[in-house]
Design a protein around this nucleic acid. Structure first.
Lengths: 255, 255
DNA sequence: GCATAATTTTGATCTGTATCAAGGTGTGGA
DNA sequence: TCCACACCTTGATACAGATCAAAATTATGC
């Protein structure tokens, strides 16, 4: 029943089957920069979805959504990582989430973008302009149902993050964050050492957890000294003691 | 087209037309306490919705949802205020939202209740058990569409609260909170003094904003001394300088 | 491969809010 | 009416994490 939407629900199956026909064009979103754009889809994509979507490839540091602008399209992220954030007038920033492969960035909610979105690394997205997306939602109830389920999941994640931001210590925040990054990867072999990739920089982590970069760095250093994690590089660490980290994340151990 | 669901979307129109037939019964949710229960609906309620829902009247301090339990029903709040919260093992609490008239507490998401819910004052709710609710959702696409729109709105609110919890000062948090309470009331006459009711106690406010009760109390006292608000009673204040409060809420003025 | 810039780490100090403590205010019941 | 309890406010002090500063490390361009 849901097979016809399967290429467009890449949380379950990323859009890797699409064969990009990369051509430099002017970005239709930001209107200011040049980057690779691809408008094509695989042969097994249903015509309705292929017509409604375009695949784009974006370099790091690109603005995908300008905070406060008018939403024109929604995005299905195929690969790479995007930061979603809200800002205060004086520049303070809160990252409300990281979106990677399989995340559907739905912007049909309001007449104004409540958050901004920027690429962290090289990102491939499938873009759905709203008139076509609305039509797809109306004509494909199973697609709409899936989006609703994801929306529910996002809300639960947001509520979990409220608990973190309002009531957890720096040490608990970092532990929770590192553990949450495991889920985004394939389950590894029967080793207790769990590799975790952190494509975002310390500033992003700090703004996601309501901390400063110094506190993030210091807390990671403490966990490293205590042999709970090993810092392989700035963008990848290994979890050496998952159980300890889990206890730390829920405030059951001070270490 | 959407007229048949109108009695069940009380954000737009509360269920005041329902005539409660209050009878003391054992609560089917908490299984432990006695309180008033009403299973009836008004004559203009469509049969499908009347069959699927029961109206309950609950006293203050009642547990509506036990955190971590299995969800059995969703609730449409008719009157009163409910606190929604998450807890850490050591008792730290984060209130993730206050739900009042018109809020639909949808719990169809997961096989476990991710948050608890308790009545703050006397609360009337319409309860929908899940088998019937699922049937309603499947057979009434407009009802489902409305729920999806509300879900989107809740997510945007949650993201706004993340910004507050992660990046705002105590003064900014309190200012934002007081302003947010205006929207829940009828727009008042052409006076600059805006009454705001706070049915929750200081402890609830603190756990909602990621503060302590002492900081909440001190910050309110400061705003009072500066003639920005007037504290009528513990549960109601007047906003005397809305513009100043708005600037404070977004961090544009330190006072 | 080297120079330079960007990012991360570490150290010293400061401060906003938490914690600890006491007193005040309102409310409901005997 | 008075007591007892729950809640709120105010004060004194402590501390987790912020801020300021500088060194170490990593990334980038030529």
């Amino acid at each position: 029943m849901a097979s016809y939407i399967h290429p467009f629900t890449p949380a379950l199956q990323p859009l890797s089957s699409l064969t990009p026909d990369v051509t430099p064009q002017k970005c239709m979103m930001c209107q200011t920069r040049q980057h690779s754009v691809c408008i094509t889809a695989s042969e097994n994509t249903p015509a309705a979805f292929a017509d409604a979507s375009q695949k784009l490839s974006l370099p790091p540091g690109m603005t995908l959504i300008e905070e406060g602008s008018t939403p024109l399209a929604s995005f299905n992220i195929v690969s790479g990582t995007i930061r979603l954030f809200k800002s205060l007038p004086d520049g303070r920033r809160q990252i409300i989430g990281f979106a990677d492969a399989g995340h559907f960035l739905d912007l049909t909610s309001s007449d104004i973008c409540n958050f901004g979105a920027e690429t962290i690394d090289t990102v491939e997205v499938c873009r759905f302009f709203h008139p076509q997306l609305d039509h797809l939602l109306a004509s494909h109830p199973a697609f709409k149902h899936q989006l609703m389920n994801r929306l529910t999941l996002r809300l639960a994640e947001a509520q979990e993050q409220m608990l973190l931001l309002g009531r957890k210590t720096a040490r608990e925040k970092i532990s929770t964050f590192l553990l949450s990054r495991i889920l985004h990867q394939h389950s590894t072999a029967d080793t207790t050492i769990i590799p975790v990739s952190l494509p975002m920089n310390r500033s992003d982590i700090a703004d996601y957890l309501g901390l400063t970069i110094e506190t993030v760095s210091r807390t990671l250093s403490n966990l490293r000294r205590e042999q709970i994690i090993a810092v392989t590089s700035h963008h990848s660490i290994n979890i050496l003691a998952p159980d300890t980290l889990r206890k730390l994340a829920s405030g059951q151990e001070h270490g």
